[in-house]
Amino acid sequence: MAWSEACALARVLVADQSSWLGARVAGMDRPWPAEAWILANLYDLTAAANAKKGRALRPHPRPSDPKPTRIGRATVSQRRIRAELDKRSARAQVK
């Protein structure tokens, strides 16, 4: 295989978001074919059309969406978490 052919194939892969290389270059965590984007959009539109009035809907997650920084809810107050962490760090420094 010549370098020109390898470069041409690499350009094709980078342009195709359904390939792993194309998905990574586009900033996505996994490849998604064009059909999946269409189906996700159709799902969102169907859900919005059939939803009760005033109900907030979350769109179907896409691989290009930013990753969540927090999952779930804290069951303990922030003050208590910090106090426990301070205690543990103090114990680690004593040893």
Results as ranks from 00 to 15, higher is better:
Ser64Arg: 06
Pro33Ala: 10
Ser89Thr: 01
Trp32Ala: 11
Ser64Leu: 05
Val14Met: 03
Ser89Gln: 11
Ala90Ser: 15
Asp86Ala: 15
Pro66Ile: 01
Ala10Trp: 11
Ile81Glu: 03
Leu45Arg: 14
Asp44Val: 00
Arg55Ser: 09
Trp3Pro: 05
Gln78Ala: 13
Ser4Cys: 05
Lys95Met: 12
Val94Met: 14
Cys7Val: 07
Val12Pro: 14
Glu5His: 13
Ser64Thr: 09
Thr46Glu: 10
Leu85Asp: 12
Asp29Met: 02
Val94Asn: 12
Ala2Asp: 15
Arg70Ile: 09
Thr46Gln: 08
Pro33Lys: 11
Lys95Cys: 12
Ala40Ser: 13
Gly27Val: 00
Ser19Leu: 05
Arg79Gly: 02
Thr46Met: 06
Ala15Val: 06
Ser64His: 04
Leu57Tyr: 01
Ala26Gln: 07
Arg70Gly: 11
Ala51Asn: 10
Ile38Leu: 11
Ser77Tyr: 04
Val94Pro: 02
Asp65Ala: 07
Asp29Glu: 11
Arg91His: 08
Arg82Tyr: 10
Arg80Val: 11
Ser18His: 06
Pro66Gln: 11
Asp44Thr: 00
Pro59Phe: 03
Gly22Trp: 02
Thr75Ile: 14
Gln78Pro: 11
Cys7Pro: 00
Glu84Asn: 13
Val12Cys: 14
Arg70Cys: 14
Gly27Ser: 04
Arg62His: 04
Leu57Gly: 07
Ser77Gln: 06
Ala8His: 06
Ala23Met: 02
Trp37Thr: 09
Val76Cys: 02
Asp44Met: 00
Ala49Asn: 10
Trp3Glu: 15
Arg91Pro: 03
Arg73Val: 09
Ala90Trp: 01
Ala49Met: 07
Ala92Arg: 05
Pro68Thr: 03
Val12Tyr: 15
Met1Thr: 15
Ala10Gln: 10
Ala83Leu: 07
Glu84Tyr: 08
Leu45Ser: 13
Ile81Ala: 08
Ala15Ile: 05
Leu57Asp: 03
Asp16Met: 04
Ala36Glu: 08
Val25Ile: 09
Ala2Cys: 15
Leu21Met: 07
Trp37Asn: 04
Ala40Lys: 12
Trp3Cys: 15
Gly72Pro: 00
Leu21Ala: 07
Val94Ser: 15
Ser19Trp: 01
Pro31Leu: 06
Ala56Arg: 15
Asp86Phe: 11
Gly54Phe: 02
Arg73Trp: 08
Leu57Glu: 04
Pro66Lys: 07
Leu45Ile: 14
Ala48Trp: 00
Trp32Met: 14
Val76Glu: 05
Cys7Leu: 09
Pro59Ala: 10
Pro33Leu: 00
Ala47Ile: 01
Ala2Gln: 10
Arg62Ser: 04
Asp65Asn: 08
Trp37Glu: 06
Pro66Val: 02
Pro61Ser: 03
Gly22Phe: 03
Arg80Leu: 12
Gln17Lys: 12
Leu39Val: 10
Gln93Ile: 04
Ile71Met: 01
